[in-house]
Nucleic acid binder design. Sequence first.
DNA 1: CGTCATCTTGAACATCTGTTTAGTGTCTTG
DNA 2: CAAGACACTAAACAGATGTTCAAGATGACG
Lengths: 221, 221
Amino acid sequence: MRSGPDDQTAKARIRDAAILRFAQDGLDAPLRSIASDAGVSAGLIMHHFGSRAGLRSACDEFVQASIRVNKAELMLPAGAPAAMLAQLAQLEGYAPLVGYILRCLQAGGELTSRLVDGMVADTVEYLRDGVRAGTVSPSRDEAARARLLTDFALGSLLLNLPAGKDPLDLAALPAWFAAYVDRILLPTLELFTKPLLTDSTLLDAYLEGQGSAQSTERTTS
Amino acid sequence: MRSGPDDQTAKARIRDAAILRFAQDGLDAPLRSIASDAGVSAGLIMHHFGSRAGLRSACDEFVQASIRVNKAELMLPAGAPAAMLAQLAQLEGYAPLVGYILRCLQAGGELTSRLVDGMVADTVEYLRDGVRAGTVSPSRDEAARARLLTDFALGSLLLNLPAGKDPLDLAALPAWFAAYVDRILLPTLELFTKPLLTDSTLLDAYLEGQGSAQSTERTTS
DNA sequence: CGTCATCTTGAACATCTGTTTAGTGTCTTG
DNA sequence: CAAGACACTAAACAGATGTTCAAGATGACG
């Protein structure tokens, strides 16, 4: 009855096929192609999930649950949660999950906000650890910085993703991730190590403008 | 015959309506809705543009030409090309253009690469000017840095864009841009002014690893 | 006036889509 | 065994969409 690893219920088989198809062909993949992949009729999807939206919801919940489960063991060696996707994609069998998440981020919906918010929360922790260890400098607004870094990482990833409407090659995803990281690593490290701006003229001007608007804030060096 | 500003050819009217609809409802907006907006029949679109793809191509070319025309006067006071979209959206009547561009970036296609490449080229120039003026520190790989900053800016923008599949409110776009910039300005300036990482351990380690792989490269401080 | 090219339309066509429905088997349960 | 609940299918339905087609309008030109 319940979803064992060897023998899958038709409902579970449909869900897995849906995640795979959605990842490969986009979130608007036809129900009939999913049904065909799962070896069932299109009507059975309606029987089990009620509607297309129901299937999407089931996929969303399953993906969210999978993240929750695998997060703990993935965060141990990991660190930067933005790199979590890359690491996760390397794992055997998890490429469809990552592809589905990417497509959700691309389309922007209910899951997107939750996922991004979760990653921002992880980034906050990660940065806080860095600040405590002395490897990361503190920020005037830790939450805003974490949000910015997460948005930068995810947004740049999506922008470079080689899949607009055309199918996404899940098998090539790990190699693509590796190549992408390799491409941005040097400029990223440089940007995070040596200040882009040579002086704090712009920042000071902004802080001054803000300070006059609100209460006078002391600039802690 | 030719597209005057007062009296529009049906072909031009269709193109304008298409850009508007594509910006508002997404790149997969029905041809019939475009035809209705332009006050023509759906068949006339086929007559003038051959197919849906032909209409898209015409829109792409028109947008690209508009950018080329308006770029010169917009770059004078501007600077950061990533902010060009925001400034352009403020201009009366240019919101549909910006919306169309955003949807193209979202979908990723032929235009996307060209647009991003163009912005990267602009960023290269902008950064080079900064380096010359002494306000921007030089990079080991100027091209890669320009690409990274452009990807960060555009990607973050798209990720935060309040439009997945649902219609994009072009009238509210300028206000949204202003609020977005206001939200990210402080962390961005901070990130660009004070190094995120307190020391160059990671960067040095990477450079050493690269240096041993290729020819021994001298780290210029 | 007649004719030809162009602009334009409305309907029809073909296809694809999510969804519904009626029916068939299969299994549990009393 | 009877009966009902459940899994499942095949077909049909209904709507939307890109595209085609035949014909009407319009204006230029001989």
